[in-house]
Nucleic acid binder design. Structure first.
Lengths: 121, 121
DNA sequence: TGCATTAGTTACCAATTGGAAACTAGTTTC
DNA sequence: GAAACTAGTTTCCAATTGGTAACTAATGCA
């Protein structure tokens, strides 16, 4: 007695799940969204700028996460031949397509705080 | 010689970082977005429905993640007095406010796949 | 000469995450 | 009476994540 498998898992459903998994993998970890968000509003920024701007991140993490983002072509890394060499990071055009996601996430977070504290609408 | 601290970390920047951290905490883990996404498109669903629908998830994880989502009031849990009792999960009105985020994330994932495979626009 | 700054890297460690499998417990069906 | 289905829980384990702190290496400044 073989049970017919439920045909619930439609193709579009699977595509959606894969899509979500992909995006979350690209944004994986505690810091990537913050780095992207900071670079999106700061434009070109150096390693030490980011280290100082992003509260709580350690050099090791920043370095590693930037490498991930660079591999996924969301940011570019440019060595500038200054006195002590500096390295500039910048969000690519492709990386900017993440902006709607980050904005939605930030918006929701604000909404969430408002709901927690009073707001008896 | 005290260096003036850079006033870069503006208040709105901090608010944004907190907001992002909050949202990501609510959505933390490998499965919450998938559970929410599945419930959003499936409406009321039972535990076993979700277990079968969400590919790869184990009962332990589903149970734990549903508890988290319930605690954050994103889903409701209702015991139904059927022959073998069943439990229905459903996204709350509040939970539905996550939809834009999930949609953006899913959209980006599709865009990402298209970019990877060919697409020389 | 020695310290500061740049941009990292390395080593070590602790906590968290998540997976597999077995188990509970009540009800129903064969 | 055994098996199956409901909704989980429990235990045990392995891998991943991420933090601290120290270190490298090149250059500039006093």
């Amino acid at each position: 007695m073989i049970k017919r498998k439920a045909v619930k898992k439609s193709l579009e459903c699977k595509v959606r799940i894969t899509a979500i998994t992909d995006t979350m993998q690209v944004l994986s970890g505690k810091w990537k969204i913050h780095i992207l968000g900071t670079l999106l509003q700061g434009g070109k920024m150096r390693f030490m700028d980011l280290l100082r701007e992003i509260d709580g991140i350690a050099a090791k993490m920043l370095s590693k996460e930037l490498q991930d983002l660079e591999m996924n072509q969301l940011v570019t890394r440019t060595v500038v031949d200054t006195k002590p060499i500096t390295v500039e990071y910048e969000v690519t055009e492709y990386g900017k397509t993440m902006e709607p996601i980050i904005d939605e996430i930030a918006n929701w977070g604000v909404f969430y705080r408002n709901r927690l504290h009073g707001k008896t609408e």
